[in-house]
Design a protein around this nucleic acid. Sequence first.
RNA 1: GCGCCCGUAGCUCAGUGGAUAGAGCACAGGUCUCCGGAACCUGGAGCGUAGGUUCGAUUCCUACCGGGCGCACCA
Length: 561
Amino acid sequence: MKSVLESVKGQIIVAIRQAAEKAKTEGKLNYDSLPEFVLEVPREKEHGDFATNIAMLLARQAKMPPRQVAEIINSHIDPEGTWVARIEIAGPGFINFYLNSDWVYEVLPQIEEQGDRYGNSDAGQGKKVQVEFVSANPTGLLHMGNARGAALGDTIANLLQAAGFTVTREFYINDAGNQIENLGKSLEARYLQQLGQDVVFPEDGYHGQDIIDTVKRLIERDGDKYLGMDTALRRELLIQYALEEKLQAIKNTLREFGVEYDVWFSEQSLHDSGAIDAVLEELRAKAYIYESEGAVWFKTTEFGDEKDEVVVRSNGIPTYFAADIAYHKNKFDRGFAWIINIWGADHHGHVKRLKGAMKALGYDPDRLDIVIMQLVRLFKGGEIIRMSKRSGEFVTLEDLMAEVGKDAARYFFVMRSPDSHLDFDMDLAKSQSAENPVYYIQYAHARICSIFRQLKEKGGTIPRAGDCNLMLLKETAELELIRKIVDFPHEIAEAAVNLEPHRIARYAHELAGLFHVFYNSHRVITDEPDLQNARLVLVKCTQTVVRRALHLMGLTAPESM
RNA sequence: GCGCCCGUAGCUCAGUGGAUAGAGCACAGGUCUCCGGAACCUGGAGCGUAGGUUCGAUUCCUACCGGGCGCACCA
């Protein structure tokens, strides 16, 4: 269904176009082709409900000052069939449209009808899109970078779904390569240590307590049965046990965090199936591959990289990059129209070469978008919490959820642009006060629920929008609230298409603010039945949108707090 | 040194090729006999620097300054 905003704007755009064409036909305006003008909501309310820059864009072609072009278009506009009440020309040549404010009321019956589907659009036209995020090594627990990726990726996926895309959420399991080998060495050392042997722990091993815990559980289950084995087999068995356990832990944590994946894709499977060999063969056939110093190289310099990249090490084992090429080829071959990866800033250097590899294989690299998110700094008591994997000291996602809760964690990770470094204030995140945006938004929802409880106690019910005189909603606070609600579908679509989940966090906060202003200045439950009914409809619709916005970010919408 | 990201109010951050650049916090003052005070209102101050493109630049380009992250036969 078309949103109210879309249809209102659409009408005006058509009227503008017709006016320009009519003026051209009458010889009053000269141009070859109509430029791509915009009709947007001006920053200043005084500049009307919508404004267009068409006159300024036409000025050159028309060989006339912009304001004169604006006058000519204005005099040819037929406002019939639009909500336009008045048109003004202002500034350097803007055409400002002032609408009969009744147009905004249209949205309330629409929300009533659509319920939690309000805000959805068909911007994506059902196109298949894949969002791959977190994809942590199953060698440890999830850290803050993974956590931000989880919140961002899942919210982006939610937004894309709402915007009409068919979304697949995917986790790429890095269960191959050096990290795993290293895990094996670490596990073995801990295993032997636990059984009383004096072995040296590998310098660059995984120092975390979780490795020790894993080994303890294994000993509990199997005792010392691995003691007498040869190292290679022992490591393999230890790895097998640890991977299974760690992956399960990751799955559980992410589920707790509100993230449900459609696909868990194993890197090892690409090695086992021969997919990596096949893709390297393909690249070799296209002459992008050469051998040097015992290793196999891919000519990434042909795609703007500073130096070529190794795909098969001299020990014969393919690198992570080789697996990644095979993996992304696999993604394209699964028919996704759009492939989105969420990566930490520490991986940005791979973007160019991965896209280059896709181009080399004949895929359109523009269908692959990589969202690079900047790093997270945790603050507590005004101090930075230093984390280091090496020392085994880091706050895990589980720790964070235990400390501040799922809702606060998800909101804080999403509220900033991915491009922005995130200072995560743990004290603020868990504070139950108005300064905490999470509570501020959720409180708006709880307040609305409270109004309905009051209503019920008084024996009242929420009326149907069609049975109300919505035009009684004429206070500024009411109109601004409705206007914000009107924007919701557009906000979702923009946030989705541009991969900007923070927009929805902001939107939710602003919406809650407008509701609080309304609530504070006007009573919903009053002794004027008609006004009360109209306001009940407005509040009900606000509740729907607040709830939906919270859900898109993966937060709960509490009925009381 | 090279590459990517960032530099906007005291702090944390939005934002836009255009008409008077916003929010939250902090600070100061105020509101409410009333549906939940986890609320609301008022106030000040800002686009890192220097050029360029443009009718118009905070936005695009270049250089510089400052910060983060990369620059492995790790992932």
